[in-house]
Design a protein around this nucleic acid. Structure first.
Lengths: 348, 348
DNA sequence: TTGTACGCGTTATCAA
DNA sequence: TTGATAACGCGTACAA
């Protein structure tokens, strides 16, 4: 009782531990551990009492201590950029996927003031078993270097070719843009402009999808290239370039949703109606695209699926040390909304 | 040499530890610890060799082990919603602020599939010294319960009154809206509609700011209330309500930027020009508001400042156990852009 | 300047 | 079914 009292009093100051629960119930720490982990070795009655005491004392397991003891880490580190558009949704997909496979998630933000290097360093400090890097601005050598130095499997999400150093999870940008292009051609469009955003990491496959599909359809390509960035601002720049032409095209495809919204703003502000005068498509199926006021035809990457694929690739590498890095391609789907319609010439 | 060789070989499989560095250099592990932490007790030469070996072996300190050993935790847990608009910017402000004060940051996401409770549980598992909760959808009793059960200081960012259970960091919504209202009145507007978003946690003070300022100016209040949500969709709903009226007001103030953009989309799509026909204001100075295609007059909350204030409040509570929770009000500033102008009647 | 001994909270191995 | 003991990586007295 004297010892219990001391334990209880001390527990008020710090987070309760297994020892506190054990002292509280008058049993050993180890038994508490077994009971909490649902391992064989504790009686039903003991299990019940331990669970009750844990809830009552506000016990939560010390993740660091557990990790320290266990030989193998069950932590997946995730590097992401908070301010970006699609990445948060991928993060949302990572949590349930990791949980299903029995892994923890530790997030590390990459911001203008916090380099990817720092984010990596922190994740290694948490002894993550693998790292998922979402939408980084790193090139192949940089990613390769991280994978080699960190001694843990690395999964790059968003772009990249198959390679022996890190896994890649990617949406089939070429196929997605091809679908959107074919959709516009089916509606009767012939003058289809593509707004290329070279600063966007997965810009190249999307451009390829446009060029190849147009060639296959026997249509002339018409690409507007923005100078920098790949957000609304870049789209607005493209919109102004289009307005400076003698005649507008009947359809515009933007490299992503944000740029499409930038185009939309500029066009509508100048009295051009979408889709009556110009059809418009985006890419990503971001939240903005779904707004009734935007209602953008776009291509869905399924960020949840990408998050799941990233976790599965990571866990596969963790649990099979000799497995070679893979490249997973998530097939995108066209989402037709109100921003595309047949061109007026084809109407009459 | 035999022992060193074993250490080196074993280090290839796991992350290197201080013991690996020590074995590599033939010195004691504790000396490595002193040298790495820049503590007195190691020679200049030793320090240099240790730093070199650490870099060479790819050593990074084991955060969990360090936390376990040290009596006091220097970790600040942050709960945020990845998909929200302003919160990521607050997160970006938290990192440098925490670093300045010598604290680590551990993020925990609150998503549709991951409750705040879970996020709290995980942060407690990391033995954070304090928790910062950003833009939660919890009410006062829930926050109070978290603060009491977790035994660590809690800082709520975004809304809330002063109370004895947790700190509050808030932007002065009333003052911000008052500034925007006065700005519109100065331009000559008299029929100023406020788009109230009751689902938004800090809705009340903003509404108050509008009502009180209008009364002070002797103008009639005119509030449009949305049914749910507080994003573009809610703004679009308000925009449609306004279009259904016989005459449009000359100025519309939205409860936040997202709603303002929703209003903007609906109005411009129906041929209403902003600001020529209707002036429009938002709140938050989000990235969207700064886009040249949106160019929204808004109120700046300074998310970085809020992040800094949240960290400072948390650290204060951590380092002064008997300190009472505070309420920090960040003064917002009006940002005048192109979406507001004098009404046409006042022009002639 | 360097090394020894111990403990943080947990899990794992073994014996009772 | 339970309990003693060791170990994970690190920091910190204290001794050499």
């Amino acid at each position: 009782m004297g010892v219990d009292g001391q334990r209880d009093a001390a527990a008020a100051a710090r987070q309760p531990t297994m020892a506190d629960i054990a002292a509280h119930l008058g049993i050993s720490r180890q038994l508490v551990s077994l009971a909490l982990r649902q391992q064989p070795g504790a009686s039903e009655e003991t299990r019940r009492r331990v669970a009750e005491a844990a809830g009552q004392l506000g016990y939560s397991p010390h993740i660091g201590a557990r990790l320290l003891r266990q030989s193998r880490s069950r932590v997946i580190g995730v590097i992401f950029t908070p301010a970006h558009a699609t990445e948060p949704e991928i993060v949302e997909g990572i949590y349930p996927a990791a949980e299903n496979l029995g892994y923890h998630v530790v997030l590390s933000a990459h911001t203008p003031s916090r380099s990817t290097e720092r984010a990596v360093e922190e994740l290694l400090g948490h002894r993550c078993a693998a790292m998922v890097v979402i939408g980084s601005n790193l090139d192949h050598p940089a990613l390769r270097s991280i994978a080699e130095r960190s001694h843990v499997p690395v999964v790059n999400v968003g772009f990249g070719r198959r390679n022996p150093h890190y896994d890649v999870v990617i949406s089939a940008g070429e196929a997605g843009i091809a679908q959107a292009t074919a959709h516009l051609a089916d509606l009767g469009h012939q003058g289809i402009v593509y707004v290329n955003l070279p600063a966007m990491p997965p810009a190249r496959p999307r451009l390829n999808g446009y060029v190849r599909t147009m060639e296959k359809l026997g249509l002339a390509t018409d690409v507007v290239t923005t100078t920098d960035g790949y957000t609304e601002e870049a789209g607005a720049e493209a919109g102004r370039l289009l307005l400076g032409r003698n005649t507008l095209p009947t359809a515009v495809m933007a490299g992503n949703d944000q740029a499409a919204v930038g185009v939309l703003h500029v066009l509508t502000r100048h009295g051009v109606r979408v889709p009556e005068d110009v059809s418009l498509t985006g890419y990503d199926d971001s939240r903005m695209a779904r707004l009734s006021s935007v209602d953008l035809t776009t291509v869905r990457q399924d960020p949840l699926l990408m998050g799941t694929a990233a976790v599965e690739a990571a866990v596969r590498r963790v649990e099979h040390a000799d497995a070679a890095p893979t490249r997973t391609v998530i097939e995108p789907t066209l989402v037709v909304r109100g921003s595309t319609a047949a061109p007026r010439a084809a109407d009459g």
